[in-house]
Design a protein around this nucleic acid. Structure first.
Lengths: 147, 147
DNA sequence: CCATATATGACAATATGTTGTCATTATGGA
DNA sequence: TCCATAATGACAACATATTGTCATATATGG
């Protein structure tokens, strides 16, 4: 029954996420950051997005990202810029200090990903990611059966 | 470069976990529970495990599971039984009320997993899970390169 | 038996994330 | 223009989870 295979898949995915978050925290630690802050810094570098837009891009609640962004702003890693499109929704941009911290993290992350990725083929990783993405799309869409 | 494929895999896994937790919360909601409590109830049904053992089995910090277990115990869904092997580490067991709640959740979960799993072959799901498991084992083991 | 190391529960501080609520700002239709 | 609706930031309450610390219980080696 695919239901059992799916349940096992879901349980494994949840445990994997815990390990990945912990690994991300370790990668971000030398820059004084965490996995969550790192995500916001990376979004800030893209630029042109408000906090609410970043939250949607990350699949997180607006309020949680707002709290992180406010902390990063108070530490000078990001800055709020006026948005000609919207008076309240300021645009988030990366400061020089923020870019420096993000750079430190991403150098470490690249080495980490290369090291772990070497144990897999790109095809394996992409196939697994494809399944994960399809599951996500189903969860975002129909809210599923049986609930 | 497999590093890039791995990075994309990791980002997708983190987002998927968020969706799965939200879905689990919805499944557990009719029983007045959450994803986290559900996991502890399921472990309690297996029986013969202390809080610390459950935490290790779930890949979570001992202290967090302890807090959940204390709440579940105060609500009468689990009970602490004396452990002949260890004076302090009581064994966690499911009460009748806990079993009833867990049953409600698992009926909903079975339908949910069948519905979502129908869009995949067991082979796809198992292959994806295999990759996730291998990543986890690498993360648990070496703590990886580049960090 | 004793000393050391490990495991466990208790407690606290902190980080992350969700939901709910509110006032304000945009947006779109009558 | 006016009004209803949606989006946004601010604030609060709560759930989850981590790390750190402490005292006590258990295990291990001498």
């Amino acid at each position: 029954m695919e239901g059992d295979a799916f349940s096992a898949f879901a349980i494994t995915a949840l445990r994997l996420a815990g390990h990945l978050t912990a690994a991300g925290d370790q990668l971000a630690k030398p820059a004084g950051q965490t996995s969550a802050r790192w995500q916001v810094l990376a979004a800030a570098r893209r630029g042109g997005m408000s906090v609410a837009q970043i939250a949607r891009a990350l699949g997180l609640a607006r309020q949680g990202v707002q709290r992180l962004a406010d902390v990063l702003e108070s530490e000078g890693l990001i800055a709020y810029a006026d948005n000609p499109q919207h008076q309240r929704a300021k645009l988030v941009r990366l400061t020089e200090e923020g870019a420096a911290r993000l750079g430190v993290i991403e150098i470490a992350q690249a080495g980490w990903a290369d090291g772990l990725g070497a144990a897999f083929t790109s095809a394996e990783l992409d196939a697994a990611r494809s399944v994960m993405t399809r599951v996500m799309e189903m969860l975002e869409g129909g809210e599923a059966a049986g609930g």
